[in-house]
Amino acid sequence: MNIFRFAGDMTHLMSILILLLKIYATKSCAVGISLKTQELYALVFLTRYLDQFTDYVSLYNSVMKVVFIASSLAIVWCMRRHPLVRKSYDKDLDTFRHQYVLLACFVLALLLHEIFTFQEVFWAFSIYLEAVAILPQLVLLQRSGNVDNLTGQYVLFLGAYRGLYIINWIYRYFTEDHFTRWIACVSGLVQTALYADFFYYYYLSWKTNTKLKLPA
């Protein structure tokens, strides 16, 4: 494992922990956390890590899989079941039609996968779903206009994770003999592109030292 991938995993973990701590500390998911995005991410981890008990790669991978599944489920649980957090959730702003995205990703996974097995189709599904799972969150931020600091940092860390994974793939492409994984790389590029717009406005707010606001 190279340093870029490790840094990518750590920023990914940081983003999830920032969100979990924010919700836990403030007992609120206002302003601007999308339950739909969080449910999609939980589904991403659950469908990708079906190999947890069948394919062992490393202790690091196995532990991280459990941490990712548990932390993403904890966020969903808080937002759905915790009495105070649940009240702070504004579902009228969280309007992205995620069911179409789920269907599209599943059809794409049935058509485009490495091997036609249950695990592999769901692995491909999780990769496609991860690429677009941030969309409800970005739409929610767009609709509410205001982005509070922690929500901004959450998306920033997620974006950093994507960027570092791309550097990791470039590094592996040049240092490993048989590094070809089109599904993960192309989906990863699409996912990172979705953040580019947000990064631009985050950069502007940082540069001018003003509160992050997205254009309507």
Partner: peptide, 10 residues
Amino acid sequence: EDAKNAHDEL
């Protein structure tokens, strides 16, 4: 390279 090896990332 087999498929197992291909999923060594998280």
